[in-house]
Structures are given as C-alpha cells and as structure tokens.
Amino acid sequence: MSPSPERQLPRRDRPQLQPRLAARIQQQVPSPDTTDEAAATAEPPPPWAHVWRDTGARIQVVWIDATLTHVLMTCPLAAAVWDWFTATWAAITGEHAPPRSTDLLLADDQRSWRPASQLRPLWHRLRLTTIYQLWAAYQRARHQPDAGQSAGAVAARVLSSCRKALLGEWRLSTVTIRQTAVVLSDWLRGRDPKLARGEFRDRWCHRDILCELVAAPNAQLLIHWSAQHLVPLPA
C-alpha cells in the first residue's frame, strides 16, 4: 500500500508567501490625516512588532484631534453653554455663579465650591444633562459635518430634557403609576414609582424660580423656566 501524498500547507502558512507579504505591508504608507507630524520617530520598534508583520495585520494609528476637555469645556460652543449654565444656576439660587472649571463641572470636584445640600440633586441633574448634550452635539458634528451646531441649540436641548424630567417627576407625585401604567405591576418592582409632594418641591421649586405649586384645592404646577426666562439661551 503506497503512502498517502504529503499534505500541502495552506497558502497562508507557506513560507514562500511571507517575504512577499512582508514587502507588501512595508509598502503601505499611512494617509496624511492619520500621521502625527510631531511624533518622535527615533525610538526603536517594540519587541513585539514582528508579530503584526508576520500575521499580515495592518496597524492603523488614529490620532484624535479633540480631547474631552476641549469638547466638553473649552471649545467656543461648550464655553458658551457653560456660561449659560452657570448664569442659570445663579438665577435659581440668587447667589454668585459657580466657577466654570473642569474640576467642578466635569469631575464634580466640590472642594473649592459646592451647592447647598438640598440643591445637590438639581445640580447633578442639570450638570449631567449639560455634559450629555455637549457630547451628543460633538457626535452629531462628527457624523454630520454639514449639520449646524450652535450653543443655543445645545442649551435648548438641555432645557427641554430638564423640563421633561420635571414633568415626569411631577407625574410621579400626583399619579399612582401602578394603577395607570399599561404594563403588569410586577414589572414595576424595586423603587417605589411615587414621589412625595414635598420632595418634588425640594427638588424643583427652590425660590419658585424654575416652577411653583399654585395654591388651589388641588395644587397645580406652573413652570416658569423657558428659553427666555431666567437666562436667555445663548446665540
């Protein structure tokens, strides 16, 4: 019985392909928009660099031209939104505006300034909503370069989001969600979907600036916060 013919290696494992593959990889030149002109080139390659060459993988270095601090704090759009934010907070509290610092507004470092304890939930709501809308605006600009972005549009989204949250919590304080929801009550396990009227007042009605509860047989909510009231939206 004659021996079976020797099995050939797959094409990717044949030694004679390696030099040709390596030469093709070496000829690949990064495009100008992914090359850092200021990067140092004198350093030797890392000891594991040959692994990428041997496997034929192509290394693509993408340089991000915007840091989080720039996107969320120092670019003109973000700076204008935060100016509106701090002015709005000053109007709510009747005190000096908080400093427009990265430590406070992004990292919530309250060592140099902090809101009153009863206003911390509102502070976190407004601050985190502003961060989210700034990041969303940045992502829209990346994927839709022709779509115009303005500080006024971002601030309007912050205002709209916060008003929705305000109305949602007012509903929790006036309606029993378990009785009006169109889902099984078992789906609402966990946090009690109710909010005490006094807790709502503490969250949103400080000095009756954003909103107030009008005295009546059944208290009604009157929202004052708008695009023009407190602080007009930035241009």
Rank of each mutant, 00 (worst) to 15 (best):
R157F: 01
S185Y: 00
A116I: 01
P115S: 01
D192C: 09
H206I: 00
A137Q: 05
R189T: 08
D192R: 14
R163W: 04
R100V: 06
A181T: 14
S185W: 01
L167N: 05
L184I: 00
S173E: 02
Q139K: 12
Q118H: 15
E199V: 09
R142A: 05
T174A: 02
C205G: 07
S112W: 07
L105H: 05
R140P: 00
R120F: 09
L134W: 08
L122R: 01
L134V: 08
L184Y: 03
Q144W: 12
H124Y: 11
L188T: 06
S117H: 10
A196Y: 06
A116W: 05
Y132E: 11
T130D: 02
L172Q: 13
S173V: 01
A181C: 12
G190M: 05
R203W: 11
V182N: 08
R201H: 12
V183E: 08
Y132M: 04
L128D: 11
H143R: 11
T102C: 07
D186C: 02
A156F: 10
Q110S: 07
Q139D: 06
A147E: 15
T180Y: 04
E169A: 01
S185A: 09
C162N: 09
K164M: 11
D146Y: 07
V158Y: 06
R197F: 02
G148A: 14
R100K: 13
D108P: 00
V154E: 04
I177H: 10
S101P: 01
R171L: 11
S112I: 04
Q110T: 14
F200P: 03
Q118E: 15
L128T: 11
W135S: 05
E199C: 05
L159I: 02
L159P: 03
G152N: 07
K194F: 07
I209L: 05
L122D: 00
A155L: 10
W170R: 15
Q110C: 13
R197Y: 00
G190F: 09
D103F: 06
G198P: 03
P121Q: 08
A156Y: 09
A137C: 06
T176H: 13
R197Q: 14
V158F: 06
Q179Y: 05
A141S: 15
H124D: 09
H143E: 06
L106G: 00
L167K: 10
L159H: 12
R120Y: 08
A156G: 11
A136C: 10
R114M: 07
L159A: 04
A156H: 13
P145Q: 10
L172K: 13
Q179N: 10
G190H: 06
P193K: 08
V182G: 02
S173D: 01
R207T: 04
R178M: 01
G198D: 15
T102K: 12
S101H: 10
